[in-house]
Design a protein around this nucleic acid. Structure first.
Lengths: 142, 142
DNA sequence: ACTTATCATTTGTATATACAAATAAATAAA
DNA sequence: TTTATTTATTTGTATATACAAATGATAAGT
């Protein structure tokens, strides 16, 4: 059933969640080539771009709670894609060589995802929509 | 950090998820009065409106997988808010009296949520935005 | 210097969600 | 009528996420 045909299509909660799930699915497809869940992929990308970034900063950038970041880092550490280095009470995170080697393929996945959705939604429209979502998310900030 | 300040604010995946989480939070607040998670609340509302609705139809309406619906019904059954009645291979679901009694309070929660977000986003804008999300979700339909 | 407060991270626990496999019922094919 | 196929739901298992409490490290107050 299409979202707009659902009884709850008028509800902000329902609509936003249904949309996020569909986008998640699309993203998952694109990242499947390198066997990473989208959230893992974006965290890894961040660490590759800023080696030594602090866990707390990752949380802020990805807008996830610190505990979620701990769990994500755990998984990526298991996969030997990054490692922690403690500095006092802080935890800093670095990419492994394996992760660095993945960089071009990751870029490919991102492009793939971008192509996929802009083909469906249009380049202009999707950019505009993303901006729109950001504006609204910022307004909802507590 | 605001969504628009994140490094990933240009990414559809990231933005849609961050937004959904913020909206979830807002909705959770509104439903807290009667101690229901938003997803539970919407499922229950659906069953109250259509007593005897089939599990599969609930899944279609809420755009969740059948297994997720099973789990949600389990929880609501534990709370004595609804009950299953098997009809052959189908499962139909009915609200209990307790659920029916909650109806006015549920209405209140929905209104509260609506007031909350339209105060922040504007009535017009939020309606428009919801429509926009539906359109996009439909385009992403496989 | 010692105690207390604060801060960053992790752990314990709980929830929502999904996929794949299992089950159970209804329908079609033989 | 038995067997095979399809359909609806549930179960087993796994993931992402969060909140609250615990831990460990620094900083502040005395």
């Amino acid at each position: 059933m299409k979202t707009s045909e659902s009884k709850y299509c008028k509800c902000l909660y329902f609509t936003a969640n249904a949309l996020a799930r569909k986008i998640e699915k699309l993203a998952t497809e694109s990242w499947k080539k390198i066997g990473l869940a989208p959230s893992h992929a974006y965290l890894l990308k961040l660490v590759i771009e800023e080696p030594g970034i602090q866990a707390g900063q990752i949380a802020a950038q990805l807008q996830l709670t610190p505990s979620t970041i701990t769990r994500l880092i755990d998984k990526l550490e298991e996969k030997k894609l990054l490692f922690r280095a403690s500095e006092g009470k802080m935890t800093t995170v670095f990419p492994t060589q394996k992760a660095k080697d993945l960089k071009p393929q990751m870029k490919q996945c991102i492009e793939d995802f971008y192509e996929k959705y802009s083909k469906i939604l249009g380049k202009e429209e999707s950019q505009h929509f993303i901006k729109n979502m950001n504006t609204i998310a910022d307004k909802l900030e507590v």
